[in-house]
Protein backbone atom coordinates (compact mmCIF):
# COMPACT_ATOMS: atom_id res chain seq x y z
CA UNK A 1 0.00 0.00 0.00
CA UNK A 2 2.82 2.37 0.84
CA UNK A 3 4.51 1.83 -2.51
CA UNK A 4 1.16 2.37 -4.20
CA UNK A 5 0.88 5.86 -2.73
CA UNK A 6 4.54 6.49 -3.46
CA UNK A 7 3.89 5.74 -7.13
CA UNK A 8 1.25 8.43 -7.40
CA UNK A 9 3.05 10.95 -5.22
CA UNK A 10 6.09 10.44 -7.46
CA UNK A 11 4.00 11.30 -10.49
CA UNK A 12 2.56 14.40 -8.89
CA UNK A 13 5.91 15.60 -7.56
CA UNK A 14 7.46 14.99 -10.98
CA UNK A 15 4.75 16.89 -12.80
CA UNK A 16 4.90 19.70 -10.24
CA UNK A 17 8.65 20.18 -10.53
CA UNK A 18 8.46 20.04 -14.33
CA UNK A 19 5.78 22.71 -14.31
CA UNK A 20 7.91 24.90 -12.03
CA UNK A 21 10.78 24.61 -14.51
CA UNK A 22 8.49 25.37 -17.42
CA UNK A 23 7.06 28.40 -15.68
CA UNK A 24 10.57 29.85 -15.35
CA UNK A 25 11.46 29.44 -19.03
CA UNK A 26 7.95 30.43 -20.07
CA UNK A 27 8.30 33.65 -18.12
CA UNK A 28 11.60 34.37 -19.85
CA UNK A 29 10.02 33.66 -23.23
CA UNK A 30 7.21 36.12 -22.73
CA UNK A 31 9.34 38.90 -21.28
CA UNK A 32 11.95 39.78 -23.91
CA UNK A 33 12.84 42.88 -21.88
CA UNK A 34 14.95 40.63 -19.67
CA UNK A 35 17.41 39.86 -22.47
CA UNK A 36 20.89 40.55 -21.13
CA UNK A 37 22.79 40.26 -24.43
CA UNK A 38 24.51 43.50 -25.43
CA UNK A 39 24.31 44.04 -29.19
CA UNK A 40 27.76 45.60 -29.16
CA UNK A 41 28.59 47.38 -32.38
CA UNK A 42 25.09 48.84 -32.63
CA UNK A 43 24.92 50.16 -29.10
CA UNK A 44 28.52 51.34 -28.97
CA UNK A 45 27.42 54.92 -28.29
CA UNK A 46 25.48 54.17 -25.12
CA UNK A 47 27.05 50.94 -23.91
CA UNK A 48 27.51 51.06 -20.13
CA UNK A 49 30.02 48.53 -18.84
CA UNK A 50 29.63 47.18 -15.33
CA UNK A 51 31.65 48.86 -12.60
CA UNK A 52 33.47 45.65 -11.69
CA UNK A 53 34.43 44.95 -15.31
CA UNK A 54 38.22 44.53 -15.66
CA UNK A 55 39.04 46.65 -18.70
CA UNK A 56 42.59 47.80 -18.13
CA UNK A 57 44.69 48.78 -15.12
CA UNK A 58 44.78 52.50 -14.38
CA UNK A 59 46.39 54.66 -11.75
CA UNK A 60 43.50 56.53 -10.22
CA UNK A 61 43.95 60.31 -10.44
CA UNK A 62 41.74 62.83 -8.69
CA UNK A 63 40.63 66.22 -10.00
CA UNK A 64 43.87 67.90 -8.87
CA UNK A 65 45.89 65.44 -10.97
CA UNK A 66 47.03 63.66 -7.82
CA UNK A 67 47.30 59.95 -7.23
CA UNK A 68 48.07 57.67 -4.28
CA UNK A 69 51.11 55.81 -5.68
CA UNK A 70 54.37 56.12 -3.77
CA UNK A 71 56.35 53.84 -6.05
CA UNK A 72 56.79 50.98 -3.58
CA UNK A 73 56.88 48.39 -6.39
CA UNK A 74 54.61 45.82 -4.76
CA UNK A 75 52.45 45.70 -7.90
CA UNK A 76 55.57 45.02 -9.98
CA UNK A 77 56.56 42.18 -7.65
CA UNK A 78 53.09 40.68 -7.67
CA UNK A 79 52.56 40.74 -11.42
CA UNK A 80 52.82 37.11 -12.62
CA UNK A 81 53.89 37.99 -16.14
CA UNK A 82 55.88 41.15 -15.63
CA UNK A 83 53.58 43.59 -17.26
CA UNK A 84 54.32 46.34 -14.72
CA UNK A 85 57.61 48.22 -14.46
CA UNK A 86 58.13 50.77 -11.71
CA UNK A 87 60.74 53.49 -12.20
CA UNK A 88 61.00 55.49 -8.99
CA UNK A 89 62.94 58.62 -8.28
CA UNK A 90 64.33 60.18 -5.10
CA UNK A 91 63.63 63.76 -4.21
CA UNK A 92 64.47 65.64 -1.03
CA UNK A 93 61.51 65.64 1.28
CA UNK A 94 60.25 68.37 3.61
CA UNK A 95 62.35 67.10 6.51
CA UNK A 96 65.47 67.04 4.34
CA UNK A 97 65.64 63.29 4.01
CA UNK A 98 65.47 61.84 0.48
CA UNK A 99 62.00 60.61 -0.35
CA UNK A 100 60.94 58.02 -2.94
CA UNK A 101 58.35 59.08 -5.50
CA UNK A 102 57.02 57.42 -8.63
CA UNK A 103 58.74 58.56 -11.80
CA UNK A 104 57.15 56.23 -14.36
CA UNK A 105 54.55 53.53 -13.73
CA UNK A 106 54.93 51.56 -16.97
CA UNK A 107 52.13 49.15 -17.82
CA UNK A 108 52.43 46.68 -20.72
CA UNK A 109 48.82 46.09 -21.69
CA UNK A 110 49.87 43.52 -24.28
CA UNK A 111 51.23 41.20 -21.58
CA UNK A 112 48.48 41.73 -19.02
CA UNK A 113 46.04 38.92 -18.28
CA UNK A 114 43.75 41.13 -16.15
CA UNK A 115 44.17 38.88 -13.13
CA UNK A 116 43.90 41.87 -10.84
CA UNK A 117 46.70 40.90 -8.44
CA UNK A 118 48.28 44.36 -8.73
CA UNK A 119 45.02 46.10 -7.89
CA UNK A 120 44.35 43.75 -4.99
CA UNK A 121 47.82 44.00 -3.49
CA UNK A 122 48.37 47.74 -3.73
CA UNK A 123 48.82 48.87 -0.09
CA UNK A 124 47.57 52.38 -0.77
CA UNK A 125 44.75 51.46 -3.18
CA UNK A 126 46.30 53.50 -5.93
CA UNK A 127 45.44 51.15 -8.78
CA UNK A 128 42.08 50.31 -10.25
CA UNK A 129 40.37 48.95 -13.33
CA UNK A 130 38.80 51.11 -15.98
CA UNK A 131 35.85 49.92 -18.02
CA UNK A 132 37.60 50.62 -21.32
CA UNK A 133 37.72 47.45 -23.43
CA UNK A 134 38.47 48.47 -27.00
CA UNK A 135 42.19 47.83 -26.84
CA UNK A 136 42.94 47.17 -30.51
CA UNK A 137 45.79 49.29 -31.87
CA UNK A 138 47.86 49.12 -35.03
CA UNK A 139 51.24 49.20 -33.36
CA UNK A 140 52.41 46.98 -30.53
CA UNK A 141 54.35 49.80 -28.91
CA UNK A 142 51.10 51.66 -28.28
CA UNK A 143 50.20 48.98 -25.74
CA UNK A 144 53.01 50.12 -23.43
CA UNK A 145 51.48 52.83 -21.33
CA UNK A 146 52.74 55.16 -18.63
CA UNK A 147 50.02 55.21 -16.04
CA UNK A 148 50.97 58.30 -14.03
CA UNK A 149 49.90 61.39 -15.90
CA UNK A 150 52.52 64.04 -16.65
CA UNK A 151 52.86 66.56 -13.83
CA UNK A 152 50.92 64.44 -11.37
CA UNK A 153 51.94 64.19 -7.75
CA UNK A 154 51.09 62.09 -4.76
CA UNK A 155 48.26 63.02 -2.43
CA UNK A 156 49.63 64.40 0.82
CA UNK A 157 49.51 61.98 3.68
CA UNK A 158 49.34 58.78 1.66
CA UNK A 159 53.05 58.02 1.62
Amino acid sequence: MNSFFKYFSDIFHGVKSLLIGMSVTGRYFFSPGQIVTQQYPENRKDLQMFERFKGEVILIHDANNQHRCNGCGICENNCPNGSIEIISARVPGEDGKPKRIIDKHIYHLGMCTFCGLCVKNCPSNALGFSQEFEHAVFDRSKLNKVLNKPGSSIIKGVE
Binding site: Y28, F29, P32, I35, T37, Q39
Partner: peptide, 13 residues
Protein backbone atom coordinates in the same frame (compact mmCIF):
# COMPACT_ATOMS: atom_id res chain seq x y z
CA UNK B 1 14.89 31.99 -31.71
CA UNK B 2 12.65 30.25 -29.18
CA UNK B 3 15.65 28.73 -27.45
CA UNK B 4 17.31 32.13 -27.32
CA UNK B 5 14.29 33.85 -25.81
CA UNK B 6 13.92 31.13 -23.20
CA UNK B 7 17.55 31.66 -22.21
CA UNK B 8 17.30 35.47 -22.19
CA UNK B 9 19.37 35.79 -25.33
CA UNK B 10 18.72 37.44 -28.68
CA UNK B 11 19.35 34.53 -31.03
CA UNK B 12 20.39 34.82 -34.69
CA UNK B 13 20.13 38.48 -35.71
Amino acid sequence: KVCAFMQNRVGPN
